[in-house]
Structure formats: structure tokens, C-alpha cells
Nucleic acid binder design. Structure first.
Lengths: 146, 146
DNA sequence: TATAAATAGGATAGATTTGTCCGAAATAAA
DNA sequence: TTTATTTCGGACAAATCTATCCTATTTATA
């Protein structure tokens, strides 16, 4: 019953950490990231690759390389894009009770009750930007670990 | 990113199916249940055991045995109790981003945004009774499979 | 009491998710 | 061009979740 997969949790936190640093023109390594967000390093690196493939972050290979985010992208990237890059679109489709087809005409027992929750989650993910999350970390009102 | 585990999906549907039948004084077997809710039989049987241990349903062993629910319990049992019996209390505690401690004083980046979603889910689970779900199945407005 | 029918529960297998390891490829700097 | 550094990506390992199988135990009935 946890909302996000571990991969997604790490991905979100990593993206925030990268955003915080990119806003100060600092590139960061998977090692640093995993230490700062309290996640397994190699596994986190895999997730970062997924974020790179989805054009959410940029990777620079070779010496003095690392990960960064385009400053304009910090403002526009939404939580929903990060979740989608890692967990796919399973939030939006898929029946709460696993029916093959579940819609208004043939709903599962929790269809309409669930719809509200799903929509609330969807709105939240669509309306939360990386910028806002990064600012909250920078100002010390929220935290990436412990 | 699916809300419920498979075990929980099967458990909810099984409980509803048992409630529908108990309201007509019929006991049902795991075989019949798994056919009607489209779930693996042996696995479903395990989940039924958990529901029995949590006093949500009653099992009658031996010939002519099966599963049933006390009629008064059909009215009072809430979705939240079924979910709790199977998935534990991970809905209510547990940080969305996996922080060890995540509260007002030390929130994760999505803490307050998530709170709304969690509360919506929690309300839904707390305010939905087995009776209501069973009635909707009996009246044909919702379905347990396909 | 014997028998048949049913749930209980342990052992195990398969699938998926989570996590690790290591060599290949790329790149900046000496 | 060489070297050091760093991400990429494939192979693999561990843990968890899902699912199956088989035997033990219980119980109604003949």
C-alpha cells in the first residue's frame, strides 16, 4: 500500500537534489546524490539513467562530469513527469481492484470512490514543480532524508 | 504505483463475495470464491485465512464447511479493516518518499501535498462498508471480475 | 467409528522489485 | 596521447510478492 515504488521515491528525491545543486551551478555525482538522499548508490544510478532518457535531467560523462538539470527545466518539470519516467502511467489507468476492464459502464466495487483519490493524486503530481520542491529544500522547510 | 497489493485486491473482492452470499445464508468455498472474483485459488485461500485471524470473516472447517460473515458484521465492517488485515497499517504511517521520520517538524518534500491524498484515501476506506459494496454487487451496478 | 469433504498451514516455486558488481565508453586535463 | 575520472549498461544477486502443491486437521454424516 505504499504509493510510490522505491525506485520512484529515489528518483523524486534525486531529481530534487540535482535541482537544488543545478540552481547553484553545481554538477553532482550518483555517489553524492545517494549519500544526500539516503539511497543505494548503484540502484540510484540506474534510476538517474531513466531520468536522463526521459530528458528530465542531463548527464555529462567523463572527468568532471555528473548530473544536472537545465535551469529552465527546473521551473517547468512536474512531479508527474518524474513519476511517469520511472513508474510509467500506472497511476492513470489500471483498476483499483485489478479488473481487466473497469469504467463507468462496468465499474469495480470501489471505482467511483477511488476516482476521487486518484484525481487528487493526479492533481497533486501535475501541480507540483521541481522548482517549488527545490526551494523548500533550500529554505530548510523540508528534508530529503532521515 | 498500484494502490493495493494483489493480496489486498483479492481480499477485498473475496470479502464482498462472501458478504453477498452470507446475506442469503450461503456459505462459500475458496474454489467458488476464486472463480467468481477471478483470483488464484490457493493464494486466495491464504488471504482468507488472514481475514479469519482478524475476525473479519468466519471459517467453518470440515464437511459442508466454508466461509461466511456474521450478518451484523456485514453492516459494520469497513474497507479499512480489510486493508489493514492484509496490508497492515502502511497507509496511515509511512512517508511517501520513504523517510524514517516524516512529520510536521521534519517533513519530506511532498509531505503536506501528500497528506490530502492520504486523507482522501483514508476517509474513503473508513466510510465504505462491506454492506454497501455487497448491495452494489447484488443490484448489478458494480462487478467483481472481467 | 469410518468416511468424505472441507479449511489450515508448511514447503516450495515463480515473478517482480530492489540492489550490486564490473567492464565499456566517454571526456577533461596533463 | 595517455591517464584519471565519470556515466552507461549488462549480468547477476538478494529480497519480496505472488502463486502452487501437498499433507494435516477438523467436522458432518452414514
Amino acid at each position: 500500500m505504499q504509493m510510490f515504488s522505491k525506485a520512484c521515491e529515489y528518483g523524486i528525491k534525486a531529481a530534487i537534489y540535482i535541482a537544488v545543486n543545478s540552481s547553484e551551478n553545481k554538477r553532482v555525482s550518483p555517489k553524492e546524490i545517494s549519500e544526500k538522499i539516503d539511497s543505494p548508490q548503484a540502484f540510484t544510478a540506474k534510476i538517474l539513467q531513466a531520468l536522463v532518457r526521459h530528458n528530465i535531467i542531463i548527464s555529462v560523462r567523463g572527468a568532471y562530469g555528473g548530473f544536472e538539470i537545465d535551469k529552465t527545466k527546473i521551473e517547468t518539470t512536474k512531479l508527474s513527469q518524474i513519476v511517469y519516467a520511472i513508474d510509467g502511467d500506472s497511476i492513470y489507468n489500471g483498476c483499483g481492484l485489478g479488473l481487466h476492464t473497469c469504467d463507468e459502464n462496468h465499474p469495480c466495487p470501489v471505482h467511483d470512490k477511488f476516482k476521487l483519490v486518484r484525481e487528487e493524486l493526479r492533481d497533486m503530481l501535475d501541480n507540483t514543480t521541481l522548482e517549488r520542491l527545490a526551494l523548500e529544500i533550500k529554505s530548510g522547510v523540508s528534508f530529503l532524508k532521515t
